[in-house]
Write a protein that binds this DNA or RNA. Structure first.
Length: 280
DNA sequence: AAGCCGATCAACCGCAATGTT
DNA sequence: CAACATTGCGGTTGATCGGCT
């Protein structure tokens, strides 16, 4: 079968738009309105694919687009929404008036993602990167030990107990029980037993959409946290931002704190090369 | 001054979802 | 209901720019 191309490849211009092309597109849409992108370029006198016209309009020429730098509030909103929705850029954009999915996606990849990593937060799971905690100490231990078994023995004393307790609180009980990491199961003392934050590339929506059974197990953990964590900022309207049925307000409040107040900012040195530890 | 390199972002591509006939 | 057309989405690419050597 095969699908027909979205446009005739011959005679169709690609690459950056010229001001003249922009004006033609704007004029046409002002008069006829957007839509029917396939015939639009022909009628508007543009040597462009309809898809290219649609993209140019929705991402750049639309009059309601807010250009310029993202504000702090917008950035925090993006982090919040991404923690719930994952890479659903269009859904995120729908909740940020004047911003396009493309713009948000770019901003995430070039700014926010790096910022989170620098703060010790996994940009995929939005959880603290416990595997990076006190990494320098761990590395030092490795260099000082003759074999890996002895490194494992020393690891429990090297990791910050307070951080491990915090991680235990954040971990859904079911996941904690499964404890996929035999390293911890065999070597950490009972009280501090906590798996390293999983380096998962699963879509975020999977992990934040608990089944009926899982939902009940989430509540006590987060309720405990809510008591110990300061309230959210008043100007962060999470209800309006996160009205998705699958979202978990408790989880969001944790993320809000983690991201907006430096709660999980473990202060890695500036010269530490985080990207070496990033999964792609 | 020239070359290199990383950051940024507009634009493209392929696929999925949705609409229409 | 199937086939096809159109639109929307997310990942990726590549042009451009500024800083550094």
């Amino acid at each position: 079968m095969g699908r027909s191309p979205c446009c005739d490849k011959n005679g169709v211009k690609k690459g950056p738009w010229t001001p003249e092309e922009d004006q033609k597109l704007i004029d046409y849409i002002r008069f006829h309105g957007p839509g029917n992108w396939r015939i639009l370029p022909k009628n508007a006198g543009l040597q462009r694919c309809g898809k290219s016209c649609r993209l140019r309009w929705t991402n750049y020429l639309r009059p309601d687009i807010k250009r310029g730098r993202f504000t702090f509030e917008e950035e925090e909103s993006i982090i919040q929404l991404h923690s719930v929705m994952g890479n659903k850029w269009s859904a995120i954009a729908a909740r940020l008036p004047g911003r396009t999915d493309n713009e948000i996606k770019n901003y995430w990849n070039t700014h926010i993602r790096k910022r989170l990593v620098r703060s010790g937060i996994d940009p995929v799971t939005h959880s603290p990167r416990l595997d990076l905690l006190d990494l320098s100490s761990l590395l030092a231990a490795i260099f000082n030990q003759p074999n890996l078994a002895s490194v494992a023995t020393h690891a429990s004393s090297l990791l910050n107990p307070d951080i491990l307790r915090l991680a235990s609180l954040l971990m859904p009980p079911q996941q904690a029980l499964q404890n996929p990491n035999p390293f911890y199961a065999s070597n950490l003392d009972q009280e501090l037993q906590t798996p390293v934050t999983s380096v998962s590339s699963q879509p975020q929506t999977e992990s934040i959409t608990p089944t009926d059974n899982e939902t009940s197990s989430f509540k006590p953990v987060n309720a405990t946290l809510d008591e110990s964590l300061p309230p959210l900022k008043d100007n962060l309207d999470l209800d309006s931002l996160l009205s998705t049925p699958n979202s978990s307000p408790q989880q969001n409040s944790i993320d809000a704190e983690a991201n907006s107040s430096g709660f999980f900012d473990f202060g890695f040195p500036d010269n530490f090369i985080f990207d070496d530890f990033m999964f792609t």
